[in-house]
Amino acid sequence: MIWELVYKIGVDVLSIWKPYTFPSPVDVIKSLYFLSIDNTLLIAVGASMERLMIGYLLSVIIGIPLGILIVRYKYVGENIKSIILGLQTLPSICWLPFAILWYGLSEKTIIFVIAMGSIFAISIATEGAINNVYPLYIKAAKTMGAKGFKLYLNVVMPASLPSIIAGLKQGWSFAWRALMAGEMLVATKGLGQVLMIGRDLADISQVLAVMIVIIAIGLLLDNVVFGRIEASIRQKWGLEVKL
């Protein structure tokens, strides 16, 4: 209602802006409807989610072991951690020209950008989670004979799991942003490409409609997937406190 009121005042009453620069909610709903009935939106969401899952899975497979290596081996940590911190600050879109030179305009390019956008965030989060494990847990495990792989498997990793999940959640947000950046420049189908088509057609309603879909998917995954996993783990470890 506020959106429609602002539109009416700005466009019809004061003529501050034109309808093609600031759409009404009705026009955006119409765009969502038309994108849905011809399956454009469904195909785009399916393509985007497939790329996201592949790229994010690769970042988890690489990022978590990398974080463990940084903690486990002092030499690796001293020489690699600063490089990883530097690469983490690099915007994901910066990897796109690099990926195009390697893979051309293909699916591998987008997946590479997604993975590079989240690997370092996950590895740094894993390293921080392990370093913040309560030392008494490790000392108690060692007195019982746990060491090496068993110590990490049975004590360190379970104790650091709540913080690692928070890092995975952060890595997913980086992966989601990297996906949109890659699709807007490389993909032939996907939410990013539909967004760019709206821009090329000067259809601000379609642009805003796709942006709303992107936000909705992000909130849905955050609450349904990561939110439930995080709440379950926090409750299991007695970290869920009601104030």
Rank of each mutant, 00 (worst) to 15 (best):
I138L: 06
I212L: 13
N39F: 15
V186Q: 02
I138A: 06
C94K: 05
I84S: 02
I197Q: 01
S92N: 14
V133D: 07
L208H: 07
I43E: 10
V224D: 02
L35K: 09
A121K: 05
F22H: 02
L185Y: 11
I111P: 10
N132R: 15
W237N: 12
G117N: 03
I100N: 06
L41C: 07
V28Y: 05
Y73N: 05
S48G: 06
V26L: 05
A146E: 11
L201F: 14
N79E: 12
M196K: 10
G46N: 10
D203V: 08
L90T: 15
L85C: 07
G238T: 13
L41T: 09
G218L: 00
V186L: 01
L161M: 10
L41D: 02
P135N: 03
T21H: 13
P65H: 07
G77W: 10
L87S: 11
A115C: 12
A125H: 02
L41V: 10
L136S: 08
M49S: 06
V60Q: 01
E50A: 09
E240I: 11
K108C: 01
N79K: 14
G238P: 12
I197L: 11
I122P: 08
S173M: 11
Y134A: 09
I138C: 01
L57V: 14
I43D: 10
L14K: 12
F98R: 00
V207N: 01
P65E: 00
I165N: 00
V76M: 13
G63Y: 14
V71C: 05
G117M: 09
S24H: 04
G63D: 03
A47H: 06
I217Y: 02
I62N: 09
A125T: 08
I197W: 02
S31Q: 10
S106C: 01
K30Q: 11
P135V: 01
V155H: 06
V60R: 03
G55A: 06
L208Q: 08
W3Q: 03
G238Y: 05
G171H: 09
G192V: 06
L195Y: 12
K30D: 07
F226P: 01
L87F: 15
K8S: 11
T188A: 03
W95T: 07
M196L: 13
L85P: 00
E127C: 04
M157T: 05
I2A: 12
L90P: 14
V194W: 00
V76A: 11
A216P: 07
S31T: 11
I83F: 14
A146L: 15
W176V: 04
I138K: 10
S59I: 06
L5T: 13
V11C: 05
L35C: 11
L220H: 02
E230M: 06
L85E: 14
L153V: 07
K242A: 11
G55Y: 13
N132H: 13
